[in-house]
Simulated scan of single mutants.
Amino acid sequence: MAMAAAEIEAMIRAALPDADVTITDLAGDGDHYAAHVVSPAFAGMSRVAQHKAVYAALGGRMGGVLHALQLTTAAPK
């Protein structure tokens, strides 16, 4: 069971409402996505902490419903 890009985006935006989120389906199969997330909430956070925040927003779906997510995060400049 795959996740839709819109669902991934909505879950990230729900947790990080000020984020700029771009989701790309890498393989066209609904299982392999890239997410680019820029959020003021990431200011002062390590890259690992930023990624953990995004994974937390996905509520445990990584590795199950969502097979692969190439993640790029940043705080606004």
Results as ranks from 00 to 15, higher is better:
residue 65 V to S: 14
residue 5 A to E: 10
residue 75 A to Y: 13
residue 60 G to H: 10
residue 35 A to K: 04
residue 73 T to D: 08
residue 77 K to Q: 15
residue 44 G to V: 09
residue 71 L to F: 09
residue 67 H to K: 10
residue 33 Y to I: 09
residue 16 L to G: 08
residue 62 M to F: 07
residue 54 V to S: 09
residue 45 M to E: 11
residue 69 L to M: 13
residue 56 A to M: 02
residue 42 F to G: 05
residue 2 A to L: 08
residue 28 G to R: 03
residue 9 E to G: 11
residue 10 A to N: 03
residue 40 P to I: 02
residue 51 H to P: 00
residue 21 V to C: 05
residue 71 L to Q: 05
residue 33 Y to F: 15
residue 14 A to T: 14
residue 35 A to Q: 04
residue 32 H to D: 13
residue 14 A to L: 12
residue 75 A to T: 09
residue 19 A to Q: 09
residue 60 G to F: 13
residue 41 A to V: 06
residue 1 M to Y: 10
residue 71 L to W: 06
residue 6 A to M: 06
residue 3 M to A: 13
residue 65 V to I: 13
residue 26 L to I: 10
residue 23 I to S: 07
residue 31 D to Q: 13
residue 58 L to F: 04
residue 34 A to W: 01
residue 49 A to E: 14
residue 5 A to F: 00
residue 63 G to F: 10
residue 29 D to A: 02
residue 25 D to S: 08
residue 19 A to Y: 06
residue 35 A to D: 02
residue 15 A to P: 03
residue 23 I to N: 05
residue 30 G to V: 02
residue 46 S to E: 01
residue 32 H to I: 01
residue 70 Q to K: 13
residue 74 A to D: 14
residue 10 A to K: 11
residue 34 A to L: 07
residue 66 L to A: 04
residue 32 H to P: 02
residue 42 F to T: 03
residue 63 G to Q: 09
residue 72 T to D: 04
residue 75 A to V: 02
residue 14 A to G: 08
residue 6 A to Y: 01
residue 3 M to E: 11
residue 38 V to L: 03
residue 27 A to K: 09
residue 33 Y to R: 01
residue 34 A to Q: 15
residue 13 R to S: 13
residue 6 A to D: 15
